[in-house]
Amino acid sequence: MKGLVAPALGALGFVALWWLATVVQLADPVLLPSPAETFRETWAAFAEGPLWTDLQRTVVRTVQAFVIATLIGVPLGVALGAKERVYRAVEFVVDFFRSTPASALFPLFLILFGVGEGTKIAVAAFGAALVILFNSAYGVMNARRTRVLAARVMGASEGRILWDVLVWEALPQILVGMRAGISLALVIVVVAEMFIGSTDGLGQRVIRAQSLFESGLMYGVIFLAGALGYLLNLLFLLAEKRFVHWAGR
């Protein structure tokens, strides 16, 4: 409980500064509405329904992209990590596309998947899968050699070593990759909602609020997207603590 006091004070301070800035009219009220107005407009959008649907759409797309990315990234990463020489061969390609802004790939994915749900999910899954794959492979490659030898000396086959030792050794890094992956998936989904023929989703809602000068709502949706990203990150941090109880000990 005590640990929550400082962050809560920080958040209150931020809102207080924001409020102060609107009181002294630091900026045009259309560009910077007050916290109260932002809250009111966002709440209204929730109450009328569409914002709630937008939030759900974004969450569903992000989770879908993340699940696909995990199903591809973890097994492939673990397999590549176990065969280090193969990983070294594909490492450049993985690193290259990992460094490519996903938004630059939108046109390509539009050709491949058309204008629809599939494109947004596919491009987010692609970006997230590379991050997850990269982390899983490194987790396996950095597995402690002594543990592998210990398993071998106890008569474990190479397959058993992969399953009984390497996957566990890599698990902390796999979860780190999944955490980075879901954050990236959210980023890509929100951008995709803005630019690839969307009618719903938080990204679409932000850009529509902006073009309609509903600045209170725009700020509200930005905060909502921020809260969503923060929550997903927090969820994974808790999962890491729970499932990797031995990490760092």
Binding site: T146, A150, W246
Partner: peptide, 9 residues
């Protein structure tokens, strides 16, 4: 190195 030889999980 028992720390690295046992399986901590």
């Amino acid at each position: 190195n028992y720390r690295e030889a046992l399986f901590p999980w």
